[in-house]
């Protein structure tokens, strides 16, 4: 095995150049290194101007998602060795505007997250010294959807989000379901109304790319299908039984 590998890194500096370019860097090929370690090597030793986000290096903060050889991955969990002999192409996550180099603008997601009301909605909060009961099986109902780290890999993989930027998208919908399915929550109806104008959801064809790239096995595709079924049922009920609107 060679002892170095070449990274072809997407560079875009709006202050200085209007067009993105790829810049090649040769880095040591260490068995223990992940792509993020290689980027840190570039930043520290070769080129201090390369910009990207990272923090925890243990797959839980969600900062370091990038396209590596065309696939969205967390670079802290992608061993360089896997890509040998290279070269490896590193690009910012697809479907997002690029701020600079490998840094995307994800403000759209923050806006959409708020739109789905990802918090417990109840008519009344329980007394401050009393917990709500929740059995392990009730917890298990929504737990997988609560594992989303907001890393944006699913948006980068989503063919619908690429074409229909208004689509609320996989992670936000999974989080809406996370609260809908929590037995402590009563906000299902409110969330459904917030999503009723989302055309993107109906274009989701259950390709499942979002679930395939999710590093935390959240299965947003499953959440979206569930939502479609619930919304359709809700719509038919209101149409056929207008006197008994469901809650």
């Amino acid at each position: 095995m060679a002892d170095t590998i070449t990274l072809e890194v997407f560079r875009y500096r709006p202050d200085e150049a209007s067009e993105p370019v790829f810049q090649s860097y040769e880095v040591p090929l260490h068995k223990d290194w992940v792509i993020l370690d290689a980027l840190n090597y570039i930043k520290d030793q070769l080129d201090g101007t390369l910009s990207y986000r990272w923090s925890c290096r243990m797959g839980v903060c969600g900062s370091c998602g990038m396209m590596v050889n065309g696939k969205p991955v967390l670079t802290c969990a992608a061993f360089v060795e896997k890509y040998a002999p290279g070269p490896v192409r590193i690009e910012p996550l697809e479907n997002f505007p690029v701020v600079r180099d490998l840094i995307i603008d994800m403000s759209d997601f923050l806006h959409k997250l708020k739109q789905v009301k990802p918090w417990i909605i109840r008519e009344e909060e329980e007394a401050p010294d009393k917990e709500y009961l929740q059995t392990p099986s009730q917890l298990a109902d929504y737990k997988p959807y609560s594992m989303c780290i907001n890393c944006m890999l699913c948006y980068a993989a989503c063919p619908v989000y690429g074409l229909e930027p208004d689509f609320v998208g996989p992670a936000a919908l999974a989080l809406a379901q996370r609260y809908n399915m929590d037995n402590r929550d009563q906000g299902n109806r409110q969330r459904m109304e917030a999503l009723s104008h989302d055309h993107g959801m109906w274009q989701c064809t259950f390709v499942g790319d979002c679930s395939a790239v999710c590093p935390k096995n959240v299965d947003p595709a499953g959440a979206i299908q569930r939502y479609k079924v619930e919304t359709a049922t809700h719509w038919w009920k209101n149409l056929l039984l207008p006197w008994g609107k469901d809650k």
Partner: peptide
């Protein structure tokens, strides 16, 4: 308990 009310998915005993 406040965190519980806000939805934190605490691990539970069988009785909830």
């Amino acid at each position: 308990i406040r965190m519980e009310h806000w939805g934190c998915p605490w691990s539970r005993e069988e009785n909830g």
